[in-house]
Design a protein around this nucleic acid. Structure first.
Lengths: 176, 176
DNA sequence: ATCGATTGCATGGGGACCCATGCAATCTAG
DNA sequence: CTAGATTGCATGGGTCCCCATGCAATCGAT
């Protein structure tokens, strides 16, 4: 009948579920935007920033697992809206130091989690064992897909300039 | 320390893993595009079309779980590239009938699965039990999130015009 | 037959993402 | 000290996705 080697039912199921989830994330992003004036991505960045005192753009990109250029744009908006303050670093003029403004902190407070809300609630709505199962199963998948080398990040607060300059040249992002 | 009610470790883990997966999907989309000239989304639509003889735009949108306007654009590109043929329906002039061209069929054949490749491979790379675990855990999540009412779709081939017009008015997409 | 709903698509607007580049500031050799 | 390699960001280009609209065709009811 169909010319395509059909993936197993589970595969399709997983794919579909992922699709739905992504979709919801998008939806709640809009919702957040309507409610607070900031999109999900912006909130996400804001959040990442809140735990870091001040960080550079690249650091932020790493923490959020998104591309530098993307974060750049998001941050630009946040700055325009006065939620984040960006100052050129003293010790390195090409680097910027990002920091939440009180206004930004306020927004974050008013929207503790917004964005991934439903997802988070959903996850937390599972029984503890289900949750663990999901987490590990998903992680196994990510592992199988070889995505772990993309590192967990968010460990080195990286406050210091270059200094340590660990010259791992394999650090490139795209596999290209 | 942190002003934010921190989600449990598992939650963050799941969120992070999802992020990575989505990212890979995006990546392979680009890859597909570079290799075949068609993006992941386009391939996805092509695929959906391949199992349906011919379908209208809305039907396609439903099958792919994406918005009509999105599909409209994607299809436009496919048509421009000669992979899909669009003809105005005889019985209803505002509806269009989409159909794969032989060229489109060819592309599909040369890229049986491309796009979700890595993800699919990843899922299939899991042991049978792991896979089942993942599928059900994820599904439980989706269920908990109340996303199931968004229906599985892709069951009614819906070849006939309006005719059956099942008037389920709860069918709206956005929750707005 | 006619006027007001309803469809079915197309478009414009906006956000998120990524890649490739451009550019300035730094670092590193010589 | 100076030229070349390397950062750190910003921009432009392109795709995807959604929403709100606009417009034409169809349906419905009077």
């Amino acid at each position: 009948m169909q010319s395509i080697p059909f993936p197993s039912a589970e595969v399709t199921s997983v794919l579909d579920d992922l699709r739905r989830i992504v979709r919801v994330l998008r939806e709640s992003s809009r919702e957040a935007e309507a409610r607070l004036g900031v999109s999900g991505a912006q909130l996400f960045v804001l959040r990442a920033l809140s735990g870091a005192g001040s960080s550079s753009l690249n650091a932020l990109a790493a923490r959020t697992h998104t591309h530098q250029s993307t974060v750049s744009v998001v941050v630009k908006r946040l700055v325009e809206h006065g939620l984040v303050e960006s100052t050129v670093s003293e010790r390195d003029a090409r680097r910027i130091e990002l920091q939440l403004t009180s206004k930004g902190r306020g927004v974050l407070a008013r929207a503790p989690r917004a964005g991934q809300d439903r997802l988070i609630d959903g996850i937390e709505g599972l029984s503890r064992s289900e949750r663990r199962t999901l987490a590990s199963a998903l992680h196994r998948l990510v592992e199988t897909m070889g995505l772990l080398d993309h590192e967990p990040e968010m460990f080195f607060e990286e406050a210091e300039p270059a200094a340590r300059a660990k010259k791992k040249q394999g650090q490139r992002r795209g596999t290209t």
